[in-house]
Structures are given as structure tokens and as C-alpha cells.
Simulated scan of single mutants.
Amino acid sequence: MSTKKTIYKQLTETRYILFAVACIWIFFRHTFYYNQYSYGVIDPIIQIGDCGVDIFMFLSGYGLFFSYNNNPNPFIFYKKRVWRIIPTVMILLIAFAITESIFRDSTTKYFNLSYWFYQIYSNYWYIGAILLFYAIFPIIYASAIRQTALTLFLSLIISLGGIILLDMGNNAAFKQLIVYFARLPIFVIGCIMGYKSKWLEKSWIFLSLLLLGIPLLYIFPKEYQRLCYCITTVGFILIISKISYMLPRSTAKIFNILGKASLEFYLIHIFMLSNNVLSIINKIIPSQIIASFTCLILASILAILTHLFISTILKRCIA
């Protein structure tokens, strides 16, 4: 079996575990950042949990390359991507709006188009970013297979230039686009690694970049720190993927189930944290660590159940 096949098979087999790890990492990062929770000696690991987003971005770009390469039809590509994301996002956002309206006085904002745009653009920015990257993916794909090095270079220049310009500006709404620009290179890298899978054979390069890049994650300001994750993410993915094979079968199964519900988990945990669910749990359970794990488990269960529910509905619609 060739190394190329082995790398592809490895990432394919551990894909959902990687998604689950990314979900958990992001969750604790958010509790660390927004709730100022501390987890002792593992705080330095939690602090760089933004890498979880880059894991999603890399694997999305990587997986999309093979999907689009097998059938380079933009219409079919967009149809699959929209069908996978939009129904889930809209069902959950409507559910969130109903939940908020029950506990809050004003309901008029929910009838305003700007409210829904702001939710996807800012509160749930990952959805806005990944939809944008899906929209331009055929262009990235065509460019990557013709001018690989130039495509990577341009993605870095566009990303850095966008961050600098937005950082210099005073418009708070536009500054949200910093997180969009910061994740463009890792998405492009994922696509390129699909095209140049043999590059992943040289794992020592990515592990060396990981070691060199980690200090930058703590040194640079947050606006530029996000861009530094494109140096470290592939190394993290290769390590986590290898470790995944060492997990007990029952643990791996749970991670796989959660990984399949990663989109739902992302939306649900953001909603829970932004509506102080963790703080409420912490009032009942004094320990921050236990409260966090309780909230994580609750978000995971809700995500899995929601995923099963929505998947069932969509399958019946197709049938």
C-alpha cells in the first residue's frame, strides 16, 4: 500500500474523532476566554484552543478537494454543501430564537433580516466563513492544481493584508472579518494537501513547524495569532490522528458519534455559553471544572440528538 493511500486512509478513518477533539478543544477555549475559567496546568493547551477551528478548516479543504476532484461540477458541489449546512443552521437558529423569545420581552428583532445576517456573520461566524469558502472553492481548486505555490502565497498575502487593514480601521462590525481572513490560508492548505498528498509523507516537516510555531501562538496579538495556526495545525492533526488509534474502542465510538454532530455541537455550545447556561450550572455546581464538563456533556447530548433528528427529517425529504 502506498504512503499516499495510508495518509488518506488515516485521515479518513480518524476524521470524526478529529472533529470531536476540535469541538472539545474549542468548547474549553471559549470557557477559558469568555468565562475566565482556569484548568490549572492544562491552561496553556486550552489557551490555544482556537486551533480547533483550524482543524475544521483544514479537514474541510482537504475533504472538499477529493469530493470536487471526483466530480468537478459546481452545481452539484454547491447543492451538496448547501443541503448539508443550511437546513441544520436554520432549524437551530429558529429554535434558538424561539427559546430566547420565551425568556425575553422583545420579539420584534427576530422578524428583522439583519438579525439573522448578524447571527451567521458574527455570533456564529464559522458558518459565515465556511459558506464563503465553499462559494470560492472551485476557484481555489482550479488555482491550486495549476499554480500550487502561488495559490498558497496569495492566500497568505490576502489574509495578512486583510488583517492589517481591518486592524487599522475603527469599524467594529468590519473587524469581525479578521477571523474570516485569518482562516483562509489553512483552508487553502487543506485543499493543497489533498492535491499534494505525498507532502504529508514528510511528517517531520509539519512536526518541526509545530514546534517552531507554538511560541508564536503565545507571543503575537490575537489578531495575528489566529493566522499563526496555519503553521501548527497540520502537525496537531497528524499527532491527534495517530493517538486516535490508541483510544479504547468505546471511547473512539463516542468521539465518532460526537464528530458526526460537530456542526450541531458548534451551534448549540455557542448558544449555551452566550446565554449564560454555563454560569447557571456553575451556581449549582461550585467547581468550575465539574461545571464545565457538565455543560460539555449536556451540549454533546443535545448535539447528537439534534443531529439524529435533523438527519432523519432530511432523509425523509429526499425519499
Rank of each mutant, 00 (worst) to 15 (best):
S2H: 14
K4E: 11
E13I: 13
E13N: 15
Y16M: 08
L18N: 08
V21C: 04
I24Y: 00
I26M: 14
Q36E: 13
Y37M: 12
S38E: 07
V41D: 00
D43V: 11
G52V: 05
G52N: 06
F56Q: 04
M57D: 04
G61I: 12
Y62Q: 04
F66Q: 13
N70F: 01
P72K: 08
Y78D: 11
Y78I: 05
K79A: 01
I85K: 06
I86Q: 03
I94D: 00
A95Q: 03
F96D: 02
S101Q: 03
T107I: 15
T108P: 03
F111Y: 12
F111K: 11
L113N: 07
W116K: 09
L132F: 14
I140T: 08
R146G: 04
L166G: 05
D167W: 07
N171Y: 02
F174M: 14
F181N: 09
L184C: 10
V188S: 00
M193C: 13
Y195L: 12
E201R: 15
L207S: 06
L211T: 15
I214T: 15
Y224H: 11
Q225P: 15
I231R: 03
I240P: 13
I240M: 08
A252C: 06
I254Q: 01
L263G: 08
Y266E: 04
I268F: 01
I270P: 03
I270R: 02
F271K: 07
L273N: 11
S274F: 07
N282G: 03
I284M: 07
F293Q: 06
L302F: 08
A303L: 05
L305P: 05
T306P: 00
I310Y: 00
R316S: 10
